[in-house]
Design a binder for these strands. Structure first.
Lengths: 129, 129, 129, 129
DNA sequence: GTGGTCTAGACCACG
DNA sequence: GTGGTCTAGACCACT
């Protein structure tokens, strides 16, 4: 379920945070679903339970999950609109950053647009399969 | 000239590398231009000279700059086509990653496309000023 | 009757202890009154019976309740003076701790006094309703 | 500088957080002052550096301190009014909770007021010395 | 020198 | 069984 990249410079615990965040925002995990236990995930990923625990604490401060004592971690409720807004805001921020850079590099809007269309088409086709 | 973000998780020396790379690819710095001295940059950024030195070493191994003993660092020559190709390849990689994520989150191609158009327009307008 | 806060860091069994203690000291529960059964409370609070049992054990060692085999738990007798003394001592301890902290933070006695008056008035008015 | 109570049920790292918070709010530590290093504090308190590190991370998420890479932790700036407001809000919350309990226990406002006066006087006199 | 990340492993409280 | 806290100790990046 969760995939991490051992050789990435991004800390493992942050990779886990991102993976879980992705699953929550994409509704792979629904509100009040129980997450796998810390030990379970640690075993699967072959990392130390402390590392997963750190990720879970981070997710709690982000209000993405909540804990029930002795029972485990659960997906926190989010309003559907909030969820979509968050996804869009995310996309907006990331695209802006990249487009800005591209413009600074001297690419013309038309060029950027073409590259984007290409990418969108490629990705869409891949996802169909 | 160079801007860094002290509170970012990205190491300062890598931020410097990226900034210089950006300036070289965008032709703000032309082939064989002399870079400011390590001490100069370190002073400007209020950063330890060691940090700037590390960034310069990194830039040298990337073949983006070269050193002349006793004279400092200079922008390495690149073929114009290589430069443009590199910029486009960069953009492609980054866009693909983001678009993939957006699709996974359940956004439809049309939605993504709209957001992109918006961003491109906004950024273009800002750059005019 | 008993209210608990699931997301508080205070253990649920201690929250139950405090609630029962409060009810006994405030004479909501009188001497020799029978407490609801462990299963009853556990059902009401949607909590594990073990948790309630632990709270009851704690209350027994505090001499606030006693058990009759096969019949359940009952409120232990306390002298009325003891009861009032305990309440006052409790209040004193807690107030001292808070006031000390406030003084350390640089609040002047007059300021603390004003805030206190405010609080007392607000709470009294609320309790009337 | 920092005192902890080993036998308290409150986790050591939270005790450290509270101590530092107290020192910041009471201006014992001023904005941009450097905190002692994690290792330093860990040595003084004879606890594991990880424990202090956890406290520092908590303080960072509370926006009470910030880090400069390789240099240590520093007191974050707070507006003076914010600071006083925070202290007062804190006091208010705690007093309300206690007074509510006292009223529920059957104490009359006049009685509570008397006890409070007593406490305030005692504490003030102690602080003079 | 500084903090950040991670492992291994322990003990505890809670349900 | 669950997560929470803590220790001991390692390695790394940054200044």
């Amino acid at each position: 379920m969760i995939r991490i990249n051992e050789s990435s410079p991004i800390p493992i615990y942050l990779q886990i945070v991102e993976e879980v965040r992705r699953m929550i925002l994409s509704r792979t995990l629904e509100t009040d679903d129980r997450l796998p236990s810390i030990r379970q995930i640690a075993g699967d990923l072959k990392v130390n339970p402390n590392t997963v625990a750190k990720a879970f604490q981070e997710l709690e401060t982000l209000n993405l999950i909540y804990f029930k004592r002795g029972q485990g971690a659960f997906v926190a409720p989010i309003a559907k609109e909030d969820q979509k807004m968050q996804i869009i805001a995310d996309l907006n921020t990331k695209l802006t950053e990249i487009v800005k850079l591209a413009v600074e590099m001297g690419l013309k809007p038309a060029e950027i647009s073409n590259i984007f269309k290409n990418v969108l088409e490629t990705v869409s086709r891949q996802e169909e399969n």
